[in-house]
């Protein structure tokens, strides 16, 4: 049975959208391989929010402040696998948190594993009220590896 992660990383108010997008363009292509190495993530997507936009949708010339979202469905317990998560995704999160308004102090995350775990929990909408009381739908009761093992070749 998968669990949800709906992570919101508020970004520094002085962050320039162009700089941010250039940074993300370097990072985001690496996420897929890292998720595959972790092996517990069913789906993952990222999104950028502009809080100066009425519907939060960033538009050219948007002034922010911005937030970055990471949304995944994953198997098992986040805490127990946190070191493995750091091993594969630590450098990506180091870069993301360097843009953040509230997480730069725990970079590198490999040196602040417990603080990083606490940060993820505190900034995970799905782990905090009221969203943690909202339904999370699973279409199937299988792990990522069970799905991969039984998928047609």
């Amino acid at each position: 049975m998968a669990n949800p992660l709906t992570l919101v990383i508020p970004l520094r108010e002085d962050i320039d959208l162009g700089v941010l997008q250039a940074g993300l363009a370097e990072l985001l292509p690496n996420i897929g391989a890292a998720m595959e190495a972790v092996g517990t993530v069913h789906y993952s997507r990222v999104a950028l929010l502009d809080h100066s936009s009425p519907n939060l949708q960033p538009k050219p010339g948007g002034t922010g402040p911005f937030s970055f979202m990471v949304i995944t469905s994953y198997d098992g317990d986040f805490d127990v696998y946190i070191q493995d998560f750091v091993t594969h995704l630590g450098q990506i999160y180091d870069a993301l948190l360097s843009f953040s308004a509230d997480g730069a102090g725990i970079v590198p995350v490999a040196e602040h594993v417990e603080e990083f775990t606490a940060y993820l929990t505190a900034n995970d909408l799905s782990a905090q009220p009221p969203s943690n009381g909202f339904p999370f739908y699973n279409a199937y009761p299988y792990t990522v590896q069970q799905v991969l093992a039984n998928a047609p070749s």
Binding site: G76, V80, I82, Q146
Partner: peptide, 24 residues
């Protein structure tokens, strides 16, 4: 690191069977 060694081994590897990765 008790959490990353003893607790991971006991909780995920000893007492579950979903820790194995797919190899076709």
């Amino acid at each position: 690191d008790i959490a990353n060694a003893f607790e991971l081994i006991m909780s995920k590897w000893v007492n579950e069977s979903t820790f194995v990765k797919s190899v076709r």
